[in-house]
Design a binder for these strands. Structure first.
Length: 425
RNA sequence: GUGGACGUAGCUCAGCAGGUAGAGCCCCGGGUUGUGGCCUCGGUGGUCGUGGGUUCAAAUCCCAUCGUCCACCCCA
């Protein structure tokens, strides 16, 4: 393990076979989202720091101490995006996307937060997110939740539970915040240090404290539900009815809050107990005020983001992925003239059979060495091309996985031969 | 940012009352001059994370530092 050259802490290489799992999950997610009419938006990785301060919240932990911020050559402060909703909204405003009514978008890509690395938590991590704009009814939250549920189903994931809650309208939240603060101030001396610190900055976050004593105290704290105006309460009831109709199980968690300031109304989170402390794999909610807050026209919105690293980890732990299979064939060539013929033959085969997975031996080697390589990569057939085959216009095809005799196949019917065998597999 | 555990070959790990490195797997080659997997024989590969200290002598002891993992924290 060389010391001199290392990746930056918290920044990881993703190699096969893990990268194959990533591809599979990304493809499934893309399919699920595209099927429901979400279009992919590709956003910059860098935005002005100001954007995140105004959306996520200047006093949030993310903005306060986790962003990769740096001045550009003109002295403007830029930041690597810690999440993508802000950028998505910024793009929507600057590109005029919110002037056309309803809009469904999804994105994927790396995000950056300077946290202490841990299992399921890295400084560069990847999210797939879905955002829906211009819809006020609870139906869009139900749709978003159903999309995530569909994705879990498609990849065969079990053991994720959905938690939902509502933060209420802006006014509800303000009223609740006051009630909660009042309660917490009265019990300030029994709060832990972190929670006491949050009294001044983000009191709602105290609700998901892990400190036992604090949790106990919170049992008697005022609940958001009791501060809800009739419209908010009706909206939340509607969401629950829709989830019931969809057959999606959930638990109402009055302590579920979000770390980002822009959320209002419904919030939700999919959690697992298989990932240790980093248990949230997908979460989101409604953020009706954000577009206007950033200078756009008043536009209701909701969305979620899932953490790819966590999803991959969870899926791998549940053995959701099929065992990797080797290529269909490995082309063995012996000597200079057969090697030249092999190059052309491989091209012809790939033209004829676009789905054929074929490795051509490189760097020569004895027949034994080449056969070993063919075996090692898990190829189904070794296709041998030596001087004698060359003279006959044929190849020798040897099955490597099944106990069958090898046989001579004419080069001009090799593609048909392989097509048949591969389809049969 | 805080606390704890741990860093020895590409991988998994042994060696740690201090005497200057080992195994298994992998990889390469021979046994079979054109036939893989099994077997067998041989071979490549490590400044023992890094820097300092103690000592005649340090992978083994001490300090620092970097990294990994776990928890706090944060959150996807």
């Amino acid at each position: 393990m060389t010391q001199a050259l290392r990746p930056v802490r918290g920044f990881n290489d993703i190699l096969p076979p893990a990268s194959v799992h990533w591809q599979r999950l990304e493809n499934e997610a893309a399919a699920v989202l595209e099927q429901a009419g979400y279009g992919e938006i590709r956003l910059p990785v860098v935005e002005s720091t100001d954007l995140f301060a105004r959306s996520i919240g200047a006093s949030s932990d993310i903005v306060e101490k986790e962003m990769y911020s740096f001045p550009d050559r003109q002295g403007h402060s830029l930041s690597l995006r810690p999440e993508a909703t802000a950028g998505c909204v910024r793009a929507g405003i600057t590109q005029g996307l919110f002037d056309g009514g309803q809009l469904r978008l999804w994105y994927r890509g790396p995000m950056f937060r300077h946290e202490r690395p841990q299992k399921g938590r890295y400084r560069q991590f990847h999210q797939i997110g879905a955002e829906a704009f211009g819809m006020t009814g609870a139906g869009i939250e139900a749709e978003l939740i159903a999309l995530a549920a569909r994705l879990w189903k498609r990849i065969g994931l079990n053991g994720v539970t959905l938690k939902i809650n509502t933060l209420g309208s802006f006014e509800d939240r303000k009223r609740y915040r006051a009630a909660l603060l009042d309660f917490l101030h009265r019990h300030e001396d029994s709060l832990d240090d972190d929670s006491r610190r949050r009294l001044g900055s983000n009191p709602l976050r105290i609700l998901d404290s892990k400190v036992a004593a604090t949790r106990e105290l919170l049992e008697n704290a005022p609940r958001i539900v009791d501060s809800l105006g009739s419209a908010s309460a009706a909206h939340f009831d509607e969401l629950r009815r829709q989830l019931d109709a969809l057959g999606i199980a959930y638990v109402c968690d009055p302590f579920l809050v979000r770390g980002l300031d822009y959320y209002t109304g419904s919030v939700f989170e999919w959690v697992t107990d298989a990932l240790g402390a980093q248990d949230a794999i997908c979460s989101g909610g409604r953020y009706d005020g954000l577009v206007e807050e950033l200078g756009g026209r008043r536009t209701p919105a909701a969305g979620w983001a899932l953490g790819m690293e966590r999803l991959v980890l969870l899926a791998e732990s549940q053995a959701v992925f099929p065992a990797p299979s080797g290529p269909d064939a490995y082309l063995v060539a012996l000597g200079e003239a057969p090697e030249l013929r092999a190059l052309a033959l491989a091209e012809a085969l790939r033209d004829r059979l676009p789905r054929l997975r074929l490795i051509v031996n490189a760097d020569g080697g004895s027949l034994k060495a080449q056969m070993r390589r063919a075996d090692k990569c898990g190829a189904r057939f070794a296709i041998i091309l030596g001087e004698s085959e060359l003279a006959n216009g044929a190849v020798t095809v040897k099955p490597l996985l099944e106990k069958q005799e090898q046989l001579a196949v004419a080069q001009d019917v090799l593609a048909d031969f392989l097509a048949q065998r591969i389809q049969a597999a």
